[in-house]
Design a protein around this nucleic acid. Structure first.
Lengths: 242, 242
DNA sequence: TTGACTTATATGTCTAGACATATAATCGTG
DNA sequence: CACGATTATATGTCTAGACATATAAGTCAA
């Protein structure tokens, strides 16, 4: 019987507070920039202790839905563009799932102290050790993608001794290192001599480029550039919306 | 004077507890499946109250780094698969959000009975009416993307009379038609004569292509192809792991 | 052996306080 | 008016308890 507002079942109080606020943000009732009620106001409204509303607000802040500023209050954060779920699986899994034979070839692997370019690419300031890896993935013996990767050893010490001659670094990392944030940048280029040779395509042919950066908290794990032949490969994202 | 482990500066206690645990997980000292110390053990180790370690563990759980089970304890989670939220905003909103001047130009608009090619593109069998739209988006008066769109009028009758000379069809649809499913296909091509002229780039220059199909229930709403200059435009997707 | 019941226990939620800290607003002074 | 010092206040962190709840593990009967 849904007679009352929504105290029907019985989620815990802080979850209800969180859900209430979340709903108002998502429906646009509280637009970006809107100041949500102060903790003491919510305490009064829900008749609970401050720690309870604090927990609700802290979780909303952790989820980037709101921003909290001392002395000023808590505010609805800006973004909320049209968002979609894009699944970019581990390449080995992707090819295997397509029912094609996966091939992997390690082209090069170097362990070095981070150069200025490496630090710039990883977005770190201190010069620690890194592993640079170049490799090629193929499907049914046809080049599928070339990979150029940098792994920060201060974040992933085990990568120094991992055997990447048989297991692709992407798969290895996925199974050994949890990540909290990542960023993909997708762009297009035309193949230069080196790319053309590695992918067995013509110089000047279009290539799809995916630059992926992965972090654990604020710490960089790895930066990878994947080059796909653009006319044969397609990145498909299917998702549900609202 | 970094003599101790890392109590040098002074993050709050619960953050230090969280960081300590996180580090052990990252280094592999506590592999997936490992049971981390019970709250009361951490309370003893850090000499604090249970709420403090609870906050640290709760955040690690919210970040999916650990899994907490009543009566059993807290366990290191297996690293998650790579599935991500890709944000592809409405182009007008995207450019505006960048703080650049949005420009829009309708190149052509045709209302016609669906041709075989149209039906194929929309994935429909019956020959209904469609609107074909070609337009160009610019940022600070520089071509940003060209759009080639087909709208199924049997799904969106209002589109027949909508004024697309001022409002881009993407924004119009986003605000008038709810969608339930969409699919993006991203690929790379080199510019042909027509694309080169529209985007003001050289013939043979790389272009990023996004083909987007949108449905409501099983009904096609629209199919659109967006062409971006590949060397200047980047599609950025930032997301949280899970 | 299997299933049902009981118990012990780790986490989940909550309270009513406390002090710390960053900072928006205000006040004073040059 | 400009600028530095002061103050008020909202959030940040923490405590020492409490009771709730799910469930692993043990117990006992069929």
């Amino acid at each position: 019987m849904s007679l009352a507002t929504d105290a029907a079942d019985k989620p815990t109080l802080y979850k209800r507070i969180r859900a209430d606020i979340e709903k108002r943000i998502l429906t646009g009732e509280w637009p970006p920039g809107h100041r949500i009620p102060f903790e003491h106001e919510l305490v009064a409204r829900y008749g609970c202790s401050r720690m309870t509303v604090n927990k609700a607000l802290s979780e909303l802040a952790q989820a980037d839905l709101i921003e909290r500023r001392r002395r000023a209050g808590s505010f609805v954060r800006r973004p909320q563009h049209l968002s979609a779920v894009l699944k970019i699986a581990d390449i080995r899994a992707e090819i295997t799932a397509l029912g094609r034979a996966y091939g992997y070839e390690l082209i090069g692997r170097k362990l070095r102290t981070a150069t200025a370019a490496d630090r710039d690419r990883l977005g770190v300031k201190k010069a620690g050790k890194v592993v640079a890896i170049a490799c090629r993935h193929s499907a049914d013996n046809v080049p599928f993608a070339v990979e150029d990767r940098l792994i920060d050893l201060s974040s992933v010490p085990d990568a120094a001794t991992a055997d990447f001659s048989r297991e692709p670094p992407g798969s290895w990392l996925l199974h050994h290192v949890p990540w909290t944030e990542a960023e993909h940048t997708i762009s297009a280029i035309v193949a230069d001599d080196r790319a053309a040779e590695a992918l067995d395509i013509a110089v000047g042919a279009p290539c799809l480029v995916i630059d992926r950066y992965t972090w654990r908290s604020a710490r960089t794990i790895t930066a990878v550039r994947l080059l796909y032949p653009g006319d044969s490969h397609r990145l498909v994202a299917r998702f549900k919306g609202g």
